[in-house]
Every structure is written in structure tokens, then in C-alpha cells.
């Protein structure tokens, strides 16, 4: 193992230890503690948006702007791929 890899491994392990501790400190799996925002959405989504699917209600109504951003990212990626594979000479 080279010197660089040994050096990298030390810091990698430090980071791993902290992250694993953090995974143990989280709320128990399946029992989230704070639920008010999502409860609000589950209770009101059907009446407010008329959509039976709560996720779609969130995607297109409550967080519609994120979805616009997401569509923009796809648009950006297509433009990016096109610009990378374009013909260089005009």
C-alpha cells in the first residue's frame, strides 16, 4: 500500500466512524419523531389538490417549483450532451 493510500485510509476511517455513529443516533427505524409537516400534507392533499396520489400532489402542487427545477435539470443535461457531442467546425 502506497503512502498516499495509507494516509487516505486514516482519514477515510475517521469519517466512517463519525458517520456510523450518526446512523446510530438517528430516530429508530420506522418511528419518526417529528411528523407535523407530512401529516399536514396527508390530511389536506386530497381536498386541496384533488389528487388521490399524495406523492403526485406533493410533486406537482406543494413542491411544484422543485419539479420545474428537475425538468430544467433534464433540459440542461440534454443541452449539455448536445453541446459536448456537437460538430466543432461550423
Amino acid at each position: 500500500m502506497s503512502k498516499r493510500n495509507l494516509f487516505a485510509l486514516i482519514f477515510f476511517v475517521i469519517m466512517a466512524v463519525f458517520l456510523f455513529i450518526s446512523s446510530l443516533m438517528m430516530h429508530p427505524f420506522g418511528n419518526p419523531e417529528e411528523t407535523n409537516m407530512d401529516d399536514e400534507i396527508i390530511e389536506n392533499a386530497q381536498i386541496e389538490t384533488g389528487a388521490n396520489n399524495g406523492v403526485t400532489a406533493v410533486v406537482f402542487d406543494y413542491r411544484g417549483f422543485d419539479t420545474l427545477g428537475e425538468a430544467t435539470i433534464l433540459f440542461t443535461a440534454v443541452a449539455g450532451v448536445m453541446i459536448i457531442f456537437r460538430r466543432m467546425n461550423k
Binding site: 487516505a8 482519514f11 469519517m15 463519525f18
Partner: peptide, 16 residues
Amino acid sequence: SDYVLWFVIIISVLFL
């Protein structure tokens, strides 16, 4: 890879 390694180093130092 080294660029990412520096990132990991900074994160672990800041964790400490």
C-alpha cells in the same frame, strides 16, 4: 481522486 481525498480530509478534520 486526490481532489476528493482533500474533501474527505477536510470533512474528517472538521468532524474532529
